[in-house]
């Protein structure tokens, strides 16, 4: 089974991201693979470990995204494809899906697995658009794979009150729920092996895309500015005997936020 995993490099949300004048301050940002894409990669690795085959990771961006691709190789992906561009900052989901679709149009694969959304934009649109542009079936928010073959796959999809089980013909597109698998950690051996695995770089201008697809900023939607939410105020701890602290807590809830008023 040949599996493609498009991955997105995003700012590490564990860092204290700063916003100034409506823009994210780039200085000091550390970049990581979007966590949902890490789950997608883990799913792909488990599938190929069980059913055989190879995983190709794919990412669009400047030379910096090679760090993310190299990490994916360290985690176990077999090869990487880097679509190099000067900047993909501000691109909307439509543009990304167009570039991915053009890149994958002449590739040989059985399955495309992605995170259900990206960790930075949280839009969740790209996989669906990609499936549409490629004319492929798609099932979203998958929690488990069963009965895997090169021609079809059974998918468990999480719903509010149960699990929906679907059979999808391949090739197709799947997005994964993060409960599907815990992403593995890179080992020292994996890091060493990653240096020897193939990474192909393709110039985005060589794909033959319409010029407007590559325009800076969004094509269908545009992010106007960013705002940071107000920081949470420090909590207060009530310590002591509960016969004293419970009335004190109740009094505070009434007084400060109007509860039980």
């Amino acid at each position: 089974m040949q599996i493609i995993v498009p991955i997105k490099q995003v700012p590490d949300v564990a860092l204290n991201i700063k916003v100034k004048d409506g823009e994210i301050v780039q200085e000091g940002i550390s970049w990581v693979i979007s966590s949902w894409d890490e789950t997608a990669l883990e799913a792909a690795l488990q599938l190929t470990e069980e059913a055989g085959g190879e995983v190709t990771v794919l990412s669009i961006g400047t030379a910096k995204v090679q760090e993310a691709l190299r990490k994916a190789l360290a985690l176990g992906a077999h090869q990487a494809l880097h679509i190099q561009c000067d900047s993909s900052a501000g691109w909307d989901s439509y543009q990304v899906a167009k570039v991915l679709a053009k890149t994958l149009a002449d590739q040989d694969y059985n399955l495309i697995i992605t995170g259900k959304q990206a960790q930075d934009s949280d839009a969740g649109l790209t996989p669906t658009m990609l499936a549409e542009f490629l004319g492929l079936p798609q099932v979203t928010n998958i929690t488990a794979f069963k009965d895997v073959s090169d021609a079809s796959i059974t998918l468990h999809r999480k719903g509010d009150d149960g699990i929906e089980i679907s059979k999808m013909t391949l090739p197709g597109v799947v997005t994964v729920n993060d409960s599907l698998a815990e992403p593995r950690l890179a080992s020292m051996r994996g890091i060493m092996m990653a240096k020897k695995k193939p990474m192909e770089t393709v110039d985005i201008h060589s794909l033959g895309l319409a010029p407007e697809v590559l325009q800076s900023g969004g094509l269908m939607t545009e992010v106007v500015q960013y705002e940071k939410p107000d920081e949470r105020k420090e909590g207060r701890r009530f310590e002591g005997d509960e016969t004293e602290t419970v009335p004190e807590v109740m009094q505070n809830l009434k007084k400060n936020i109007g509860l039980f008023a």
Binding site: L15, G28, S30, K71, A74, L185, A186, S187
Partner: peptide, 21 residues
């Protein structure tokens, strides 16, 4: 919340990342 001032150099980022994980 990690503070970038204490992140050290960008050298061996893949090793740092894996050890942190």
């Amino acid at each position: 919340m990690l503070n970038q001032a204490f992140a050290g150099t960008g050298q061996f980022a893949e090793i740092r990342d894996a050890v942190r994980g």
